[in-house]
Computed example of a mutant assay.
Amino acid sequence: MTGCGSHAVIPARPTAKIAPPAQTVAVPVPPPAPKHVDPPEALAETIRSAVRNFDGKAGVAVTSVDDGWEVDANGDTRMPQQSVSKTWVAMTVLAQRDQGRLSLDDPLTITTADLTLFHQPIAALVAQNGGSYTSTVGAILKRALTMSDNTCNDKLLWLVGGPPAVREFIKSRDLGNIRFGPGERLLQSGTAGLDWKQSYSLGRNFYQARAALPTDVRRKAFNAYIADPPDGAAPAAVAKALARLKKGELLSAGSTAWLINTMQSSHTGKNRLRGAVPSDWVFGHKTGTGQDFEGRTAGYNDIGILTAPDGKSYTVAVMIGDTARTIPQRWELMHTVVNAIVAADRNG
């Protein structure tokens, strides 16, 4: 049959395999290394000279919150904190608030059995209310910080678990060379050479018992406290801790703001560091003052956060562990430090 023939079979071309699009792998880019800023040499020299020429045992430390530099003189030597240590009690209270273990609105009652010694203005309220005064945790904490009320501080100390709880907070936040003592009663009676009795919290009983001690007993106890204070802290560690507080590394944002705002409303030590702070700067602080004996004072301190008009902040710790210098001479040391910080900021 004409036209009839076999048809060639053309094999199918294999389908090309299309490779999936290459996946982009994100390579993490490390943040740029922070710019190294040297501390102002004039500030460092002023601080070194001021401490070197001060007649007594003293240490000073300054930290730039924004630039990270630190300067100090005798900054690693532990000095008696006295009421500076109320700062760590406050942080421990606020840390427990952050954990939901307490609220600043919780009621808190202070009775005659809670009274301590020395500066305790709340004792008058306790007496006026028949031996018992009820407020809130937040209000009592404000009194402890802004009025340096020893009884308010001790009440909060035992509320959060006593000295072990505060020491654990310091350790957990890696605050370094900072000790916390046994509480107001034992710290002050031990410094005087006395064994604590609760009757010392009333009237002039503590002063009378201390005055009745032999001079050599008092001197031995006083010198032992200065040589190795159970509440001792290094100024450099304190300044670094305040810088970390300011940067929000120690507490929640709300608790950080509460504490800094409260420190800014402090009523104590108006002629210490605050006495040289310019009116357009913001300053929050905590003072501390120890006992006097034979013309010497065991602990005369002020620590705080200085903020310039442009928002740059500096933390400072001026701690005088032992001195016979007059109070105006102690203020002069503190004012020298503040003036040098302000000058460094303006020249920076």
Rank of each mutant, 00 (worst) to 15 (best):
T2G: 14
G3H: 11
G5V: 10
A8E: 13
V9I: 15
R13K: 13
R13E: 13
K17S: 14
P21D: 11
V25I: 15
V25N: 11
V25Y: 09
P32S: 15
A33E: 13
D38Y: 10
V51F: 04
R52M: 04
F54H: 08
G56E: 09
V60A: 06
D67T: 05
D67A: 15
G68V: 02
W69F: 02
R78L: 12
M79S: 09
S83G: 13
S83T: 11
V84I: 12
V93Y: 03
D98C: 13
G100K: 10
L102G: 10
L104D: 06
D105W: 01
P107I: 08
T109K: 10
T112W: 07
A113T: 13
F118V: 04
H119T: 06
P121V: 00
P121D: 09
I122A: 05
A124H: 02
G130M: 11
S132P: 05
S132E: 11
Y133R: 04
K142C: 05
K142A: 07
R143H: 05
T146R: 15
T146N: 11
D149Y: 08
T151K: 06
N153S: 14
D154N: 12
K155P: 04
L159E: 08
P164I: 00
R167T: 04
F169D: 07
S172F: 04
R173P: 00
I178L: 11
E184F: 01
L187P: 04
Q188A: 07
G190N: 03
T191M: 14
A192F: 00
G193P: 03
W196S: 04
S199P: 06
Y200C: 05
L202D: 12
G203K: 08
R204H: 08
Q208P: 02
A209C: 09
P214V: 07
P214R: 11
F222Y: 14
N223L: 12
I226D: 05
A236P: 00
A243R: 04
K246F: 08
L251A: 09
S252P: 02
S255N: 14
A257F: 00
I260E: 11
M263V: 08
Q264R: 15
K270E: 14
R274A: 15
G275R: 02
A276S: 13
V277I: 05
W281R: 09
V282Q: 14
F283Y: 14
G284V: 06
K286D: 07
K286E: 10
Q291M: 09
D292W: 09
F293H: 11
E294N: 10
G295W: 09
N301D: 08
I305E: 05
I305V: 12
L306T: 03
T307Y: 04
P309D: 09
G311N: 13
G311Y: 09
S313Q: 12
V316I: 15
G321S: 10
D322T: 07
A324F: 00
T326A: 14
I327M: 13
R330E: 11
R330L: 05
R330W: 02
W331E: 14
E332I: 00
L333K: 01
H335I: 04
V337S: 07
V337R: 07
N339E: 12
I341C: 03
A344S: 15
A344V: 10
N347I: 01
